[in-house]
């Protein structure tokens, strides 16, 4: 069964870290359709976090269609994440490489690139949540 962990220094909200860990496990094949996620109580006991954080993560995964909860039995993997079709990835990668080159020319170092990327990424997520 999946074991969760939290990185307090990452700045990523705890519920999102849980969502990401499930989607990564699905992408890597560590979790498969039909597998059960740990119960809310198990996650709470393991990580010592607020149960609402776990519920929020599971609701988000449910909203994404990745898991389904069965009354009284738990939460189960319903499908694997789709995301972009594999054929799209090279083109997206090219775009990102071009952007990285521009950032380098503008004088941004690795930390600068990461800081800019993460703050923009979070802002986009915030906006996505605000409109959701």
């Amino acid at each position: 069964m999946l074991t969760f962990h939290l990185d307090e220094s990452s700045g990523v909200p705890a519920y999102l870290q849980l969502v990401q860990q499930v989607t990564y496990a699905l992408r890597l094949g560590l979790l498969q359709v039909g597998d059960q996620l740990p119960s809310v109580r198990e996650v709470v006991a393991a990580l010592v976090i607020n149960p609402n954080t776990v519920l929020k993560a599971y609701r988000e995964l449910e909203r994404m269609g990745l898991v389904a909860s069965r009354q009284g039995r738990g939460t189960f993997v319903a499908r694997t994440p789709g995301g972009a079709p594999p054929g799209e990835l090279p083109a997206l990668r090219q775009d990102l490489l071009r952007w990285l080159e521009r950032a380098g020319e503008a004088g941004l170092d690795a930390d600068g690139v990461l800081a800019l990327f993460m703050s923009t990424f979070r802002e986009a997520q915030d906006r996505g949540r605000a409109t959701a």
């Binding site: 109580r41 709470v44 006991a45 607020n50 149960p51 776990v54």
Partner: peptide
């Protein structure tokens, strides 16, 4: 202590 407390909230 927080573990016991959070488990109670969950249960």
């Amino acid at each position: 202590f927080l573990r016991t407390l959070m488990e109670s909230v969950a249960e």
